[in-house]
Amino acid sequence: MNDNSDVLKAAGLRKNYRKDKAAVDGVSFAFSRGEFVGLLGPNGAGKTTTIKMLTGLIKPSSGVIHYYGRDFHNESQMTKGLIGVVPQQNNLDRDLTAYENLCLHAILYGIPKDARRERIYEYLEFSGLTDYANRQVKTFSGGTMRRLVILRALLHEPKILFLDEPTVGLDPHIRRIIWDFIIKINRTKNTTILLTTHYIEEAERLCKRVMIINDGRIIVDGDPETLKDGIGHFVLEVYKDDKIEEEFFNTRDEALLALKDSTYPCKVRAVTLEDVFLGLAGRRINV
């Protein structure tokens, strides 16, 4: 395996569920080792469809996928071992214990029998779930289930991890625990990560690179800082009677100057990725 080649390279991926409409309409990208990428987009943009194509759950209508230079379609059994997947919906066996769920995964991924137990406990430890090993999954809270799904995806030590909305439906506290967990995976194991989300804060906190997808097309691809620089560094929010208006400025002083002139209540703050997203939304995203 050539470690210098891209971990993942996708070219011209397209998926038509129906003839007249492409859910994903020709997306291309390449990830290198250890990269942490966010795929951001509104509901129905095509995030899950993209992940499903990249992980072999559905076949692309056209386009090619390579992992480490190997064709995903032609060498699917070999390449599938390089991938870890956290689907949008938890798909654990609720009647089985955490350990049994993990053991099933270990068998499917060919982890040798004598190494299974040790590996499972090593990862339970890594994710702080050791106490849950022998409890039935249906007794778990949402956050614990989510952590178990992520841990399961790591068990065979994949080179790339796909996380489809890992923190949706979780409270802010648990969400931060999951974030720390994901960062730890990326740092300590140098695992390449593709995470989808529509929480902009999540992408901003975690991702070194952000791709924004809308209506099946990637409309922006870059690191969050550069994207933010593109629209200015400071925002003046003007609270008018019926709406909040935003003006963008390159320096704080310019913003403050404008604030002085305004007769409405105002607030100056730093630009966030959300502004980038909404700026695009105003022009191009049809939510």
């Binding site: 992980t55 059994q77 599938k80 689907p87 919906q89 066996d93 995964h105 499917l108 991924y109 060919g110």
Partner: peptide, 14 residues
């Protein structure tokens, strides 16, 4: 309902 079958489909098995 539980999508557990997807575990088989994404695994490196025939």
């Amino acid at each position: 309902y539980f999508h557990t079958f997807d575990e088989y489909l994404i695994a490196p098995v025939s």
